[in-house]
Design a protein around this nucleic acid. Sequence first.
DNA 1: CGAATTGAGTTTTTT
DNA 2: ACTCAATTCG
Length: 701
Amino acid sequence: MAKDALLDDLNAQQREAVLHCDGPLLVLAGAGSGKTRMITRKYAYLAKKKKIPLNSIFAVTFTNKAAQEMKERIAPFVDHDTKNLWLGTFHSQCARILRREIGILGYKGDFTVYDDDDQNSLIRHILRELNIYEALYKGVVSRISILKSHIISPEEFLAKGDGFSFDEKLGRAYLKYQHELKRCNALDFDDLIMLAVKLFEENPKILKKYAHGFSYLLVDEFQDTNRAQYRLMQLLASDHHCISVVGDDDQSIYYFRGADVGNILNFERDFPKAKIIKLEQNYRSTQKILDVSGCVIARNENRRGKKLWTDRGRGDAVTYSHLPNEEEEAKQLARTIKDLYLKGRFEYNDIAVLYRINLQARAVEDALREERIPYQVISGISFYQRREIKDVVSYMRLISNLEDNVSLRRIINSPPRGIGASTIGKIEQEAKKQGASMFRAMKSMLKAQNLAASFKEKISEFVSLIESLTRTQYKTAADMLKDVVEKSEYLNDLEEDRIQNILELVSSAESVQPRDFLDRAALASASDSVNAAKSVSLLTLHSAKGLEFPAVFIVGLEEGILPYFKAMDVPREVEEERRLFYVGMTRAKDQLFLSSVRRRRLYSKIQEQEPSRFLKDIPREHCNWIERNIERTGAASIAAKPVPMQPKSLYIVGCRVKHPSWGIGVVRDCSGEGDDTKITVNFPGVGLKRLAVKLANLERI
DNA sequence: CGAATTGAGTTTTTT
DNA sequence: ACTCAATTCG
């Protein structure tokens, strides 16, 4: 019975992938091929049939959200609480291991996790100290991140030293950065992976404990792993080689942050007896969508090659429009969306608009607002990155780790306490002299004789604030937060919406232990609101990964946008841009609309645009081509052409009607004339109804 | 120390 | 065009 539920609704390849448990396995899972279903079933199968204890399965996902979803889908199959499974992102799994084992590397188990923001401010601080031009910090941060994802320590990097000036500076900054992190008892995201690898490589006994303890390993979104993550899995698999990795080389779109498609392309080299299974049946899209996207991705050199198919039928044609400018593009898009909605085939939340760069959302937003179409922009800024949230979280971090100088610097003067750069400078000097944390230095400075009273007063106030907060043992993070907010008077003079955010944070912290809460704040993001409201989703091609929508629009298919101009001349990056386009197209279930424009305003310059090179790979017969030329025809004819004729009827699209039994509804579509008029009406709570006006006894309101 | 003005840069983003 | 951050002035 359990077996039936586990395997029955899987296709042959999915089943084979679930059943292959005795050696390395690489599953090449095409877009929409039921990958998540297969993985969750495999997890359940290992536990139920292979009798592997749940805490001996080590499973990695790409995001926390994916981990959460997987837990929910596993729950029905296992009679066990899924909360504490070894199932999470690389970062959270590594953090969990390091909390226990990091002592041997000279850190403390109560380390703080630094996010991007903290990383940036620490690097900038270091560049200032080393007299390196501070504006270079972005490059430095990303180079360091790449070094870490390749498991190259500062010492190794300096030793290799080509000695050229920038690399030499970079090396010194990296060395100091690692030193400062340690001094703050903090790890950045890349450290979590790198130090876990280091831990295992330098301590065979510990490795043995974990490699043996985890008797099966599962990795999802394998195409997005970086070298350090791959190395970690190799180490954990060194004992038994029971590892399944699942991914799609065609959907690798994170090279820019260290993901290495090589991991998927070379898996067999490192695991010679690996079994390879391709999942090629697509359950998401129509054949026409698969044809079009397949033609585009087929042109990439570096891929393993898959041929997706579906039994969903041909479906509607893919539409491509070439338009005069981005305003026209957005207008037409808004009209088409309205049309789809009024015809009753799609709700607004069935529809997504995808673009390469966030600023493209602007024109689309304007047009949707104009047409009164509800929409939501899914943007990258997460809740935890907002200033007020980071501030109060920094208080909590400082309280739980007094060595955290980065958090201290962040909050020492917010809310304003009259402690400015010069005061902070003095504290830093003193801390350096003593080889202690800044907080400790502040305390000792209070005892010194030679300092101004006003200076001491300000310092003393801050020190006693923090000390009063450290005295309490907080049961929950919410208690701690409330106390922080109250004693620091953080809410004074704060804008109302920011206060609301903080209240939201407090309520999310109820019944969470402070330590867990801080880890979550660092390792969590908040992009799970897609499809929540009944509105059109606007998002980048990157953030569309893993999602699906009945109708998808991809805008701005032009040279310079997709492929983006910075990637245009680098073949490897052009391949990634092509994959990005592919990911976008394969999000669509039923309808796909592509568009490009002739002229576009980008950073205040008006540019003549060429259609994207990727469009040339779509055979004309696969797709509806609509070109609208503005040059000679003029504006009037353009407005007239695409708007469908409105039947001259009592009932027009958008008006409200009353039906004797279904109540009040909104007319979404209208066809025929006179006595033959038929309308589609959406009655809330009842659904869509197609009615002949003559027979239906309707009343117009 | 804090507010106002001037100036450079401008993808994609999860942890 | 617009944002974010650094510099300058009160």
